[in-house]
Computed example of a mutant assay.
Amino acid sequence: MFKLGLIINPIAGIGGSVALKGSDGEGLAEQALSLGAKAKANERAQLALEILKPYAAQIHIYTASGPMGEDTAKSLGFNVSVVHHLGMPESGGKQISSAKDTENTVQALLDEGIDLLLFAGGDGTARNVCNKVSDQFPVLGIPAGCKIHSGVYAVTPKAAGRVVELMVTNQLVTLTDADVMDIDESLFRDGIVKAKRYGEMQVPSELRYVQAVKSGGKESDELVLQDIAADVINQMEEQLFIIGSGSTTAFLMEELAINNTLLGVDVIQEQQLIMNDATEPQLWQLIESSNQPVKLVITLIGGQGHIFGRGNQQLSPRIINKIGKDNIIIIATKTKLMALNARPLIVDTGDSETDKMLSGFMTVTTGYNDQVLYPVASPQ
């Protein structure tokens, strides 16, 4: 089941039609409504979600109450869970969400373990999301504001739906970093455009081969493996790196000029070997005594897709949980992933709770600064 987080800023862009140049600022939404403006963010979100209707049985939407997502998602027949409730409007008034509602919803969605956060709004909404989301968590914006300077939005609402469709159908989706930008609306209303960068977020885009390719569109395996190795090596600092088994991880060790255990697990620190062919108790002792996060680098078994439970039983459930999902680095070429024919990566740790924790979508490093989201599942 694909866990889709949904946030709709129902007042996004509401000031555009009545020449208020946006909706940010105290009292702006109320002023726009008094001038006859119509909120259209839910209509924009509906265009994106309609693309996903054929996959409704495969998607569970987590969202906020009423106009922040619940109403639109339910009207289209999706399974919906509400994680944040808007306060009741004053008598005779309209229910208007705030930046705090957006941020609280983002946090609640992250706590639910969603696979992707889809939000409808403008640059102000993107800023609110960015305040709560790590730059390593995938988000995608549905354009619904007056101004869209940020790179986290799809070009159209339907385009946003198409990108999510790729993810739901287990196709490779490249992750890219995109800037969150916004302008000073008070200056903008005086005719002054002053943009500012507020951060960046990770967004899924359609698959692009950014690695070196041969004339037939095939990846050059050695060049791609070099790029993958360079990306991982670039992350190596003082903490421990546990290197799992497999030919792809072996190439990484070769690039470091370190003898590795092809069918075992090695440990390096500051790009130096500190333990060869480690056992589960040895790994546990190392992790327990470490005063900083430990990284785990693994790859998949070609043709099968297993990342845990085949050839790396040293990586036990207690070790995996101690390391944490966010500290697991999966490396593989796109060619190797595509050979799975959209089948998910398999986790079979022997512990159902650990398998459940790992299931969903995980980032796979497929080149230098090139990552894709790929589904992970436990055996049925």
Score class of each variant (00 low, 15 high):
residue 88 M to L: 14
residue 88 M to P: 00
residue 88 M to Y: 05
residue 90 E to M: 15
residue 90 E to D: 13
residue 91 S to F: 15
residue 91 S to D: 14
residue 92 G to L: 07
residue 93 G to M: 06
residue 94 K to V: 12
residue 94 K to Y: 09
residue 95 Q to V: 11
residue 95 Q to S: 14
residue 96 I to K: 14
residue 96 I to L: 15
residue 97 S to V: 06
residue 97 S to F: 06
residue 99 A to K: 12
residue 100 K to C: 08
residue 101 D to T: 05
residue 101 D to V: 08
residue 103 E to K: 14
residue 103 E to L: 08
residue 105 T to W: 00
residue 106 V to Q: 01
residue 107 Q to S: 15
residue 108 A to D: 10
residue 109 L to V: 06
residue 109 L to S: 04
residue 109 L to W: 00
residue 110 L to M: 10
residue 111 D to R: 13
residue 111 D to M: 08
residue 112 E to Q: 15
residue 112 E to G: 02
residue 112 E to Y: 09
residue 112 E to A: 10
residue 113 G to W: 00
residue 113 G to N: 02
residue 113 G to C: 03
residue 114 I to Q: 00
residue 115 D to H: 03
residue 115 D to R: 02
residue 117 L to D: 01
residue 117 L to A: 07
residue 117 L to R: 01
residue 122 G to R: 05
residue 122 G to Y: 02
residue 123 D to T: 11
residue 123 D to E: 06
residue 123 D to P: 00
residue 124 G to D: 05
residue 126 A to Y: 00
residue 127 R to Y: 15
residue 127 R to E: 05
residue 128 N to V: 10
residue 128 N to C: 14
residue 128 N to L: 12
residue 131 N to L: 00
residue 132 K to D: 07
residue 133 V to G: 03
residue 133 V to A: 06
residue 134 S to T: 12
residue 135 D to T: 07
residue 135 D to P: 11
residue 136 Q to E: 14
residue 136 Q to P: 00
residue 136 Q to M: 12
residue 137 F to V: 06
residue 137 F to T: 09
residue 137 F to S: 02
residue 138 P to T: 06
residue 138 P to W: 04
residue 139 V to Y: 02
residue 142 I to G: 01
residue 143 P to Q: 03
residue 143 P to N: 04
residue 144 A to Q: 01
residue 145 G to S: 13
residue 146 C to Y: 07
residue 146 C to V: 11
residue 146 C to K: 12
residue 146 C to P: 08
residue 146 C to A: 13
residue 148 I to A: 04
residue 148 I to F: 03
residue 148 I to C: 02
residue 150 S to F: 09
residue 150 S to E: 08
residue 151 G to A: 11
residue 152 V to D: 05
residue 152 V to T: 15
residue 153 Y to S: 04
residue 153 Y to T: 06
residue 153 Y to M: 05
residue 154 A to Y: 09
residue 154 A to E: 15
residue 154 A to G: 11
residue 154 A to M: 07
residue 155 V to Q: 10
residue 155 V to N: 10
residue 155 V to K: 14
residue 155 V to H: 08
residue 159 A to H: 08
residue 160 A to T: 10
residue 160 A to I: 09
residue 160 A to F: 04
residue 161 G to F: 07
residue 162 R to Q: 14
residue 165 E to V: 05
residue 166 L to W: 11
residue 167 M to T: 11
residue 167 M to L: 15
residue 168 V to R: 06
residue 169 T to K: 13
residue 171 Q to A: 08
residue 171 Q to P: 07
residue 172 L to T: 12
residue 173 V to S: 14
residue 174 T to W: 08
residue 175 L to I: 10
residue 175 L to W: 07
residue 176 T to Q: 12
residue 176 T to M: 08
residue 178 A to L: 05
residue 179 D to P: 04
residue 181 M to F: 08
residue 182 D to T: 12
residue 183 I to H: 10
residue 185 E to H: 13
residue 185 E to P: 02
residue 185 E to K: 06
residue 186 S to E: 13
residue 186 S to A: 15
residue 187 L to C: 10
residue 187 L to H: 02
residue 188 F to M: 10
residue 188 F to I: 04
residue 188 F to P: 00
residue 189 R to Q: 15
